[in-house]
Amino acid sequence: MDNTKLEELFQAKVDAELKIEPKDWMPEKYRRNLIRQISQHAHSEIVGMLPEGNWITRAPSLKRKAILLAKVQDEAGHGLYLYCAAETLGIGRDELVNQLLTGKAKYSSIFNYPTQTWADIGAIGWLVDGAAIMNQVMLCRTSYGPYARAMVRICKEESFHQRQGYEIMGILARGTAEQKEMAQDALDRWWWPSLMMFGPSDANSTHTESIKWKIKRQSNDELRQIFIDRTVQQAEVIGLTIPDDKLKWNEETKHYDWGEIDWTEFNNVVAGNGPCNKERLAARVKAHEDGAWVREAASAYAAKRSKRTAA
């Protein structure tokens, strides 16, 4: 069969909402796009452990420490689900890890911002995980089977992440004047970067095939708007103010109108010049190198065990 015919069959399957599985024929570009998107997503989960890991030793109570540890451990698990999904497309784990450690691969820019106060842990859970969930819920219906299945698992686990963050923010907002100020400050710093997580606005997005191939099911701007509509209400409930003076309910569209994202900042952080880009990558490289003896020991132990069973 020639490629045009194969591509027609492939598109027919996608249009009929049939999942594409690893052994199915797929356009080379579909495969490449998926490897890029899934591995970026995996790297984001892994790098995402760093800003929060920063607060594990300083969480204000044993309960919060246990919660944060569980959350960070979940992020590691999510990274692993996604690496495995990417591997079904014919790329090796070592190559994926290498792309991250050498700076060749990208991860979500949001993790290049620092976590300055405890309230930042609240803001990350509420806003960053909240924004990620919007995207991930959509991806539960993505056309590639292994990616969709990984997303279903991730979404099940992710909702506690957002709720624990919102709870932290609510408690601080009800606390002393200083605590409320800390919560508001975190919201002020994380709001716009969280909106940037949805990516360039539709007018400037270059990935039109993603929609045709049903890798993505909703556009960046659509998801961003739903996130804003939901989060504004949540902020009101806990008495915090969204840092956008153009924010206003629009009775006609039934959505909030809102201000303008600073795309220069966005492009700058993507290009590697965010506040923590270098620090994050250095931390990953160090963790990988420092962990080498563990991997060697695991190999040695497996070899010893197999010798003992053979004897």
Partner: peptide, 30 residues
């Protein structure tokens, strides 16, 4: 047997039984 290099660690498919009496179901790999 010599040590496997870490990058040659095999891929394992994982099956989990969620409750006694139910089947083991594929959940992913590692």
């Amino acid at each position: 047997m010599s040590n496997l290099n870490e990058k040659d660690w095999p891929l394992w498919e994982i099956f989990i039984q969620s409750k006694r009496g139910l089947e083991h179901k594929h959940v992913g790999s590692l």
